[in-house]
């Protein structure tokens, strides 16, 4: 609409106004907000974002019973207690195992399926896509009971495998849709050229397509990792043995104790946060580009 008006209005002022040369103007108007309009709301929002983080650091680092607002004198006693007495060391190992296994399984299975969806036309494709979309609306939390019975049947209760499978299954649909969109963005002609050069399909995929998928795969894989690292209900339901539990379950145990040990809870929370924060810092750049490439609209 605006552009139409622009063409109509342009002739009048254009010759009269000796416009300053474009390059001198660093930012276009849409990017010309007065600085305070950026920093003020951003600052307020940052306070809201960061105070909770600061608060948990404070409780984790200051001695029990202290009311000081700075974590000084600093102590690591809460971390030691949580790591050994409350078995967070074991939980951490379990969570890493679940996270990494889910990442690998999700990425591999979704890559195969996503390739089929992106490159082939086959009979059940539409039905399969519909199933993928519909499964977005099937809440894992509501399937706890039947899932529990399936894993009991498979003798997998109290084995990390049950949680890994459950996490993978519920990660798959979205991952597959995203990956198939990423693959669609890679021109088919590139692959065909590789075939002409003598590659078979597998090799052409590995040499030509896979390197181009890297940002997308990083986004999908880290998504799967963070999700399974954070997720709580499956582990709570399927793992009764304390030796097998994961970090979110451990945190919940700390929280639901009769008298909550706030220092231990805070230290446990930080142990839970560190890996995702590291992953997040590493992938943030890819996340924006990865999502905009595979964007929801596909």
């Amino acid at each position: 609409m605006i552009t139409k008006e622009a063409t109509a209005a342009a002739p009048a002022p254009a010759p009269a106004a000796p416009e300053p040369p474009r390059p001198a103007k660093k930012r276009p108007a849409w990017d010309e907000a007065p600085r305070w309009q950026i920093y003020l709301p951003l600052g307020i929002y940052l306070v809201f974002t960061l105070i909770p983080f600061y608060w948990i650091l404070l409780f984790a680092l200051r001695p029990a019973g202290s009311t000081s607002l700075v974590p000084w004198p600093m102590t690591t006693v809460h971390f030691e207690k949580v790591w050994t007495d409350r078995s967070f060391g074991t939980f951490f190992q379990n969570s890493v195992l679940v996270g990494v296994a889910t990442l690998i399984m999700t990425t591999l299975v979704a890559l195969a399926g996503g390739y089929a969806l992106a490159r082939f036309d086959f009979k059940v494709k539409r039905a399969f896509m519909l199933a993928l979309l519909c499964s977005q609306f099937v809440p894992g939390a509501l399937l706890l009971v039947p899932l529990f019975e399936i894993f009991a049947e498979l003798q997998m209760i109290n084995s990390l495998g049950s949680v890994i499978i459950a996490e993978t299954v519920f990660q798959l649909p979205l991952s597959m849709i995203l990956i198939s969109n990423f693959i669609k963005n890679v021109p088919y002609s590139l692959e065909e050229a590789a075939w002409v050069d003598g590659c078979n399909r597998m090799r052409a995929f590995r040499v030509v397509v896979l390197p181009l998928l890297r940002p997308g795969l990083i986004a999908v894989g880290s998504f799967a990792f963070v999700h399974s690292w954070n997720h709580f209900l499956f582990a709570l339901m399927f793992l009764n043995n304390q030796e097998k539990q994961t970090i979110p379950v451990g945190l919940n145990t700390l929280m639901s104790a009769d008298s909550v040990d706030l220092g231990a809870l805070a230290a446990g929370g930080i142990i839970a946060a560190v890996p995702v924060v590291i992953v997040f810092a590493f992938i943030q750049k890819w996340l924006i580009t990865g999502f905009s490439a595979g964007a929801v609209k596909g």
Binding site: I56, W229, H231, M255, A272, V279
Partner: peptide, 9 residues
């Protein structure tokens, strides 16, 4: 990236 449980904590 913070989990629901950690948010609660």
């Amino acid at each position: 990236a913070v989990s629901g449980v950690l948010t609660s904590a």
